[in-house]
Design a protein around this nucleic acid. Structure first.
Lengths: 146, 146
DNA sequence: CCGAATCATTCATACATTGCACGGTTTTCG
DNA sequence: CGAAAACCGTGCAATGTATGAATGATTCGG
């Protein structure tokens, strides 16, 4: 029979998920240095690409970070020419963040870096397990991030 | 057929693993406030419990953090009465970190917190997928952490 | 026995993130 | 219509986390 009460958190899924995820984040961050990006910048680009966002506030909510951090992330991405800030004419308090062509290309590069990481990391997993992992991640990811 | 080139890193396992893992780490950290612990403290306790360690240097290597951070983590845990520092008589440069009974109980509490998180998080997963996820985490975790 | 290497520790520093306050804008409602 | 309240983005100070370099004690190699 399986262990009912694991002796340490190492026996739980959530703790190991945290360990692995944090390591993964650090690794991805290291691989992104050439692109002058951090995982959070990439996350912002992803949301912009996949959903779009009406305002920086909405972005902050979707990313689960403070609005003032979105300012800094957007500042940096704007500095890279990855996006424009456009005042929403309907509500001039809001800034619409628009992905540029350069931003799209940057996102593609970041995608390739992540894909390369995938090749290295999940190489050792049998296909069935890999699919199950991918599936589980989809289900567990907070809806706001999708 | 599956998508050959995902449009964003959101299509990769590693990126989603990072997102989920970082979120998981933050959530676990929040749940640990009552115990006055952080996930890193728990990780240290885990290593001590599961493998033991001859020195703080070895601990740093196993945890993948700077030796100077182990000092701070051990300071805090010693303050909680979770462990003792004992000079290794064979090599008096080294400190042997010994788990106390209180440390064991603290680790058990931290384990229960993680187990509760497991119940909440993986509740929505079918048993087969849950097992596959657990299995995949075991395989992907850097050996040093096990 | 002496110089190099090792360990734990301290310190200064870098970095990410947050909360708060502020100026400009919109909405609510008397 | 107009004033008060709410909202958005931004700047700034503060917090917490982690690192690398310097220090002192100890051990190891030749």
């Amino acid at each position: 029979m399986a262990t009912e009460k694991p002796a340490t958190p190492m026996g739980t899924v959530s703790f190991r998920l945290g360990l692995l995820g944090v390591a993964q984040d650090a690794l991805y961050s290291a691989r992104l240095t050439d692109l002058d990006l951090k995982p959070k910048h990439v996350a912002l680009l992803c949301v912009l690409r996949l959903h779009g966002a009406e305002s920086q506030m909405e972005l902050a909510r979707l990313l689960g970070v403070a609005p003032s951090l979105v300012v800094l992330l957007a500042d940096h991405l704007e500095g890279l020419g990855a996006l424009h800030r456009v005042r929403d004419p309907a509500d001039r308090r809001r800034q619409s963040l628009r992905l540029t062509d350069a931003g799209l290309r940057l996102l593609e590069s970041a995608t390739e870096v992540a894909a390369q990481l995938d090749r290295e990391i999940v190489a050792g997993l049998p296909a069935a397990e890999r699919a199950a992992l991918s599936n589980a991640l989809d289900r567990l990811l907070p809806p706001r991030a999708r």
